Computed example of a mutant assay.
Amino acid sequence: MRKSLVALSVLAASLPAAVNAADYTDGDIHKNDYKWSQFNLMYAFDELPGESSHDYLEMEFGGRSGIFDLYGYVDIFNLSNSPSSDKAEAPKMFMKFAPRVSLDALTQTDLSFGPVQELYFATLFNWNGAATTNSDGSVNTASVNNSFWGLGSDINVPWLGKVGLNVYGLYDLNKKDWNGYQISTNWFKPFYTLDNGSFVSYQGYIDYQFGLKEEYSSASNGGAMFNGIYWHSDRYAVGYGLKAYKDIYGIKDSDSFKSTGISHYVSVTYKF
């Protein structure tokens, strides 16, 4: 649940304008196919919830093939396996996979309207390990196994350009129950190009949950907004991000366990 579909927009912005077209009425559903992958070495300062500062390696990938649009990543925490890290006793890995099925390509119909360029059946899966059971029979909620199901879109927003917007229902795979909804959006805006062709971008996302059930969440709503400034070349990227939280993941903020506030991220990327 660390971040949303930012890198996919990064790649889309660097491709020809035809990639943004949603018209598959000619039957060629592979006209916009592409794929990419990259490694990000990152450090988080006071990440919420819990004000955790730690290093991690992120293996990130995505692409398009026919009706399928995919984004995903795998995070590896505490690379040196230091016993003093605040991730020492936490799960070593976190995985996110976000497959979407293009309704335009599936039906070979142009479903665009107004600023909406393309529509999707959107899914999202978050995992950080198998669910475990406590001695009292309750599920260990530190294990994240969530799935999201809903409607996705690509929309054209003034100045920002192509923006992803998805609306989901959350099905908790640990609790075997539905628990509220999530709105997710992401953007990527190059705003300054250097003489050598590299550029600086403003990129970010918003994930907002609402309608969370009282029996599962101490807050009925919550979310986060990430704002990043990144320098990009063909092979490398270096960036800084500021992330603002409010009762993240439906956890009510308290003095003993912070879920509202600000965290900072720095990253160095190699693109394959």
Rank of each mutant, 00 (worst) to 15 (best):
R2E: 07
K3E: 13
S4E: 15
V6G: 15
S9K: 15
L11Q: 11
A12C: 08
A17Q: 13
A18F: 15
V19P: 09
N20K: 15
D26P: 08
D28F: 12
H30Q: 10
A44H: 09
S52C: 03
Y56D: 03
M59I: 15
G66L: 10
F68E: 14
L70E: 02
G72E: 06
Y73Q: 00
D75E: 10
I76A: 13
L79Y: 00
M93I: 06
F94E: 05
F94G: 05
A98H: 00
V101A: 14
V101H: 01
L119P: 03
L124P: 05
T132M: 09
A142G: 13
V144H: 07
S147H: 09
L151K: 06
G152T: 00
D154S: 14
N156T: 08
V157W: 10
W159I: 15
L160T: 08
G161E: 00
L170A: 07
L170P: 07
L173H: 02
W178H: 03
S184P: 06
N186K: 10
D195T: 09
D195P: 08
G197N: 09
G204Y: 07
Q209E: 12
S218Q: 08
A219I: 11
N221V: 08
M225I: 04
F226K: 12
Y236F: 15
D247Q: 07
D253A: 06
K258W: 08
K258S: 09
S259A: 12
V266P: 09
S267D: 04
V268I: 06
Y270V: 12
K271W: 05
F272E: 00
F272W: 11
F272Y: 06
